[in-house]
Design a protein around this nucleic acid. Sequence first.
DNA 1: CAAATTTATCGTATATTTGCGATAAACAAT
DNA 2: ATTGTTTATCGCAAATATACGATAAATTTG
Lengths: 111, 111
Amino acid sequence: MAYPSTDYKEDEIQMARFAKALSHPARIAIVKLLASMDTCFCGEIVDVLPIAQATVSQHLKELKESGLIQGSIEPPKIRYCIEPENWKKAQKLFTDFWDQSYQLKVNSNLV
Amino acid sequence: MAYPSTDYKEDEIQMARFAKALSHPARIAIVKLLASMDTCFCGEIVDVLPIAQATVSQHLKELKESGLIQGSIEPPKIRYCIEPENWKKAQKLFTDFWDQSYQLKVNSNLV
DNA sequence: CAAATTTATCGTATATTTGCGATAAACAAT
DNA sequence: ATTGTTTATCGCAAATATACGATAAATTTG
C-alpha cells in the first residue's frame, strides 16, 4: 500500500525516506556511533546495542538502503561508516526544513 | 514487539519518535503547510493532499500524538497549528544531531 | 426540528516493520 | 581439509502502519 509518489514533491519523499531511516532508536544509536567514531566494525555495533546480531544486521541493511551509511568488506569483518554525500543531502533537507520554520519559533516566544 | 525503552537513551527515543512522525510524505507536507500558513483548517489540508479525508485525519492524529502539532475546535471546523514547545524540542534534537556530525562533513570534503 | 457541514472513528484489507533463532556464506587460521 | 570468526539471510511470528468507505458526532444553518 505504497503512497502514490507522483503526488508528493521529490524533496518531501526524500526527506520522509531519511526520517524513516532514523525512526528507530537503534538506528539513531548506530548512526550516532558511526558519526562519532568515523568508522567501526559491525561487531562493535552489535556489542553496544541491546538487540540480537540478526536484528542489528537488519537495521544496518535499512540504513544502507536509505543511503545514510555504507559498508566495506575487510575479511572477515565489515567496516561501516557514514555515506558522506547522502548524509549531506539529509543534513540539508532537515536543516532547511527547520530553518524554514524559524519565524514560527520566534513568534511562539512572544505569545 | 516494542523495543526495550530502558536500553536506549531518552534523547534517542524522543528523536526516533519525532523522526517517525516525519517518516511519511503526507505528514511532511502537512507540517510544512502548517509551518508556512501559521494555522489552517483541517479541510484545507484535505484539499491539498492526494489522499482521502479519513487518511488525512489519521495522519493528523499521529502528528498530534507525536506532539508536533495541535488542533483547536472552532465549530464546525478544527484549526490546526504547530505545537511550539515540542516543535522547538524536535528542532533542537535534530539540529544537535546534525551539528555533531559537522566534523564528518568537513572531512568528507577533503577526501 | 431537519438538513448540511465538518471532522473523527470504526471496520477491514493489505503491506511493512521488528525481532529472533537457525543457518548459510565468506574467509582466515590451523 | 577442518575449524573458527564474522556477518548476512531465511523463515517465522507478532505488531504496526497505511489506506479507504461507511458512519458517527458535533455544530451550524435553514
